[in-house]
């Protein structure tokens, strides 16, 4: 058992690509669900819109990376409007069902043979990130070594950009939630009729929250696309949304840094468990070695599900949250 390797993996995972991507996605869900009470179960769709916008703009439209970013952000706004208009006037569970359905619609279209020429089918799209890495200011040999793990300069650049976006997103959320705007959405989360009776256009606030959260989702999509230098329909499955929910609830919903803390801990544990289990299997540890590698990977997701249940039951406020304030157990 190589503990230093396991530790190195945990550290690099805690601050690595996935942590950034899911941190941003969870910040978006925090705006929507944590503060406003909107159940967006289609965050994966917003991520897909961001990622594919960059890929398709560069590869198929031969335009620059930045146009891809612009299209991705516009696409996320349009998607939020399309989902919000029919559902934001209805009960909370309708938004949940429609957003999860929309995410699946988008994924099915992206991976379809019919649109393969444009979206690349189940193989996805590659070779679009040059415009992004052209901005890399780090010297070519700027590798970061954490024990046995090496982070090369491209990865390092992606992480720097990614964590900057996380910081920016946190700043935006922090500024908003302590303002009168934040007061209104928190009111909506608890009782939208009360807020309505005070002359606030509840629909507009919900829509703003949905759009803003969707934009953070699109940012997550950009980072996963350039970081992996690949977009693939299957990285935007419904499970991605549910992982982001688990991260948010772990860190603490309705807390500015809840999603950030959640993502760091989640990915350290998630990847740490993976390496640990694989090493245990190789080392022939009793019981554990009855599993194979696939089963170990499946076991991790099983534990995510179990963790989400237990958190929701015993500590719905997560690590940072305040149970009194949290409206999760309302209704």
């Amino acid at each position: 058992m190589d503990w230093s390797y396991i530790f190195a993996v945990m550290v690099t995972s805690a601050f690595g690509l996935q942590a950034i991507v899911f941190g941003l996605a969870a910040i978006g869900i925090n705006v929507q669900f944590g503060y406003t009470g909107l159940l967006n179960f289609g965050q994966a769709a917003f991520m897909a819109v961001g990622g594919y916008a960059v890929a398709v703009t560069v590869v198929e439209l031969n335009m620059s990376f930045w146009w891809g970013v612009v299209f991705g952000l516009i696409g996320a706004v349009i998607l939020a409007l399309l989902l919000g208009v029919p559902t934001l006037r209805l009960r909370a569970d309708y938004l949940a069902i429609v957003t999860i359905a929309a995410a699946e619609i988008i994924r099915l279209i992206l991976r379809s043979v019919t649109f393969k020429d444009f979206f690349g089918g189940s193989d996805g799209k590659q070779a679009f990130a040059d415009g992004f890495f052209a901005m890399n200011f780090l010297p070519p040999d700027a590798d970061l070594r954490i024990g046995p793990a090496v982070v090369n300069e491209s990865q390092l650049f992606t992480y720097i950009v990614g964590w900057s976006l996380v910081a920016l997103a946190c700043l935006v959320v922090w500024l908003l939630v302590r303002s009168p705007w934040g007061r209104v959405v928190k009111g909506i989360r608890e009782d939208e009729d009360a807020v309505r009776s005070l002359g606030k256009n509840v629909f507009v606030y919900k829509m703003q929250a949905l759009v803003l959260g969707g934009l953070f989702g699109a940012l997550a999509g950009f980072i996963t696309a350039v970081g992996a230098q690949n977009v693939n329909p299957d990285s935007f499955k419904t499970d991605a949304t549910f992982f982001a929910y688990a991260i948010l609830i772990l860190g603490g919903a309705a807390r500015v840094f809840g999603p950030v803390l959640g993502t760091v801990i989640f990915w350290a544990l998630f990847q740490g468990t993976d390496v640990f289990l694989r090493q245990a299997i190789d080392a022939g540890v009793p019981i554990v070695s009855l599993m194979d590698g696939t089963q170990a990977a499946v076991l991790r997701v099983m534990l995510v599900g179990l963790g989400l249940m237990l958190l929701m039951i015993y500590r719905p406020q997560g690590i940072l949250g305040d149970r009194r304030e949290l409206a999760l157990d309302a209704r």
């Binding site: 159940l39 569970d93 929910y245 099983m302 995510v304 599900g305 958190l311 039951i313 309302a330 209704r331």
Partner: peptide
């Protein structure tokens, strides 16, 4: 007395599990 939305999220965890 767990709320319905909380239960919905628990059911997601159960489904994943």
């Amino acid at each position: 007395g767990t709320g319905l939305i909380a239960m919905m999220i628990v059911s997601i965890g159960l489904a994943l599990f």
